[in-house]
Design a protein around this nucleic acid. Structure first.
Lengths: 192, 192
DNA sequence: TCAAAGTGTTGCCCTAGAGCAATACTTTTA
DNA sequence: TAAAAGTATTGCTCTAGGGCAACACTTTGA
């Protein structure tokens, strides 16, 4: 098996019992691609036609608001799937950009191929359901976070639960994820 | 077919092509229940073991924060499913309460029965996936909403997209959904 | 290798929204 | 049907966090 598919195999293996030879039959649907730092994979207002698995590096999913603010929804590090799900499902223009914020290596599968696998491979069906469930849980927590907690508490939460975001990314990125300005983040860090 | 299952049947029918006689074979897993106004179906910190379909009335899913604030995540009106998904999936204690805010009629299916149906009935499998996808899209929009928009803009968004919430529920409920105080909501309404 | 662009910190002032209190009104319950 | 509890509105004051400007520091790239 080509090196490129090992992480994906391990990922699926962890979620479902999965035969290696079956996996080898369909893994070619996932096309390897190398991304430069800052390269944009999907532009806001265009339709998203693919799903992405990150082998190496980090992708950022963010939106430009009308007032020009950058709102970050999600960072996909190694071993994570990510896509503009709203657009992928509805095939309406996406409200978010997908950008590599480090030199990255990813596997890309087209929408058609992906849903074909979901339909025909029970393990992929299950894995997709699991991804959706986990994503839903995460976003739900994030809503309660925004709704009920101060910026300082949100920062503390991030330190406890997603320290990678703080250690690996610039303050600007972290601030746009927390929904505050870099100024405020800088000030809050002195209060920790 | 008993009256109680008509709405559920229509709901599934709209999402998938579904044979009525197949539906009749498993719909008894869903148990009808009548709820009084303000009745609590699930208490925070207990494990959620069921999924709910609303035939009539309205359920509210909310959390008591440490400072005693009530944070509302979701209102389920007629023809909607709702559960404390985080708890249902992980079987960890729920961080939210489920409460009938009007006299309501619901169908309740146990966790085991529900996942059994998801596994064995393709239409339910598909419907569950669809529910997850839609729920994910909604919560994602809500995050961008909280992250990037003022309380007034969030209120405007609600008027355009979920007017039922505004017309049918008390200001207190609406405010806790928007993540603001009833005072602020009252003031914002004069600015519309 | 040195200019140019981006990043982080801090002082100052400003604004959206919170919190409390007072009052009016409506709903529930006994 | 009256008392009690909950809901809505508004004035006043306070605070978390935003936005600008200035400066230091680091990274990028011709």
């Amino acid at each position: 098996m080509k090196d490129k598919y090992e992480k994906l195999y391990d990922y699926l293996q962890r979620k479902t019992q999965l035969e290696k030879d079956v996996f080898l039959n369909y893994c070619h649907y996932f096309k390897p691609k190398t991304l430069k730092r800052n390269e944009i994979l999907l532009h806001q207002n265009t339709v998203c036609t693919f799903n992405i698995f990150v082998n190496k590096g980090c992708l950022r999913f963010y939106s430009h608001s009308e007032e020009g603010k950058e709102l970050t929804r999600y960072f996909a590090f190694e071993n994570k799937f990510g896509t503009s799900l709203t657009s992928l499902i509805s095939q309406a223009p996406s409200n978010e950009n997908i950008q590599a914020i480090e030199k990255s290596e990813v596997l890309i599968i087209s929408r058609n191929d992906f849903y074909h696998l979901v339909k025909t491979i029970p393990e992929i069906n299950f894995a997709y359901r699991d991804i959706l469930e986990m994503a839903y849980i995460t976003t739900t927590k994030r809503i309660y976070n925004f709704q009920g907690e101060s910026a300082l508490d949100r920062l503390r939460w991030l330190m406890r639960n997603q320290p990678l975001i703080l250690t690996r990314l610039s303050n600007k990125m972290v601030a746009s994820y927390l929904g505050i300005t870099p100024y405020t983040l800088s000030r809050l860090k002195t209060e920790l």
